[in-house]
Simulated scan of single mutants.
Amino acid sequence: MGSFKGHVLPGTLFLVVGVWHIWSALLRFASNPKSFRVRVWNTVPGFDGKLKYLELYLVVGGAFIDLCVELLYSTHLKFFVNGQLNPSHMNDFEHAGMLLMFFIFGLVSLLSQKTRFLPLPEGALCLVAATAFCAEYLLFYFHSTTHKGLEGYYHLLLVLLIGLCVLSTVAGALLPTSFPVDLSNGIAITLQGLWFYQTAFTLYGPMMPDGCLLKEDNISCRTMDSQVRGELLANFQLFSLVLGVLGAVAVSYTFVDSKYRHSDLRSSHAIQDG
């Protein structure tokens, strides 16, 4: 069973990173399409380069904080019962393992960029990130906490979005010059963050569907019709988020293209218009 804060905290991390990834991909492609390369993380300009690695610091710091919440606060340091892992907090241990993978990805990326100890190419970093998403996918697919009914349906849709993150990240390693692949990765990460938020507000907030309620840490619907209506509402919510993100990307690209378009891109557009 989750909670409102337990979904909002990781959702914020994915949303911020995803939006920044989309914006950076659009800007880099419009500025110089011929030299475009897929990047698993993007530098932050300004302040004489002091914010260059801000995205990686956000990933490392956010994953570490959430890891501490799951492993230390949620378990109350009761890791073992009768010599075995505490069965009451298996979901917290699983969440901590997933967050550890994202922490490792951020740390490996920082070491690769700032030191000489681990000089990995961008494709290798894409595969490290894909491993973290795979760990997240396996966690929610084989979760020890059995998600049933409406809650299970929301987590099923989350698993599908995580799968898109895995595929687009692996594709970034295989197609290192593909702008659509890099953009798709940012869109998938953004949608995952938004879906965490949508799940929090629907299942643990004020948007609970009629006929369903949260009681004693369980979400139940009075009738099967109420559950079906809730699932249809989830489909509509996901469709709305996808449509909204794609619309925002289109508007952002129009703005970036008009302001930062490279001369080569203008020439190609002129030839096509001619």
Rank of each mutant, 00 (worst) to 15 (best):
Y153S: 07
P206L: 11
A200L: 06
L213Y: 12
L157R: 11
L191R: 02
L167N: 07
T190F: 05
V166A: 05
L203F: 07
V159S: 06
L164S: 13
L164E: 11
D217M: 11
A173V: 07
V181Y: 04
G163Y: 06
Y154V: 02
A200R: 03
T190G: 08
I162P: 00
G193T: 09
A171M: 15
Y154M: 09
D182K: 04
Y204S: 03
D182G: 13
I162E: 00
K148E: 15
V170D: 01
M207D: 15
Q198Y: 09
T169M: 08
Y153Q: 06
A173L: 11
I189K: 05
P176E: 10
A171D: 12
D217I: 02
L150R: 04
L156E: 11
C212L: 03
Y153H: 10
G149A: 05
Y154P: 00
F201P: 05
S184R: 06
L164Y: 11
L150D: 04
L213M: 13
T169N: 06
D182I: 03
F179T: 03
C212H: 00
L174W: 13
N185L: 12
C212F: 00
D182C: 15
G205A: 11
G152D: 01
V170K: 06
V159D: 10
G163V: 04
P206A: 15
A188V: 10
N185R: 15
D217W: 09
I187G: 00
N218G: 06
Y204T: 01
L203P: 02
W195I: 02
T177P: 04
S178H: 04
N218R: 14
E151D: 15
L157V: 12
L156N: 10
L161Q: 03
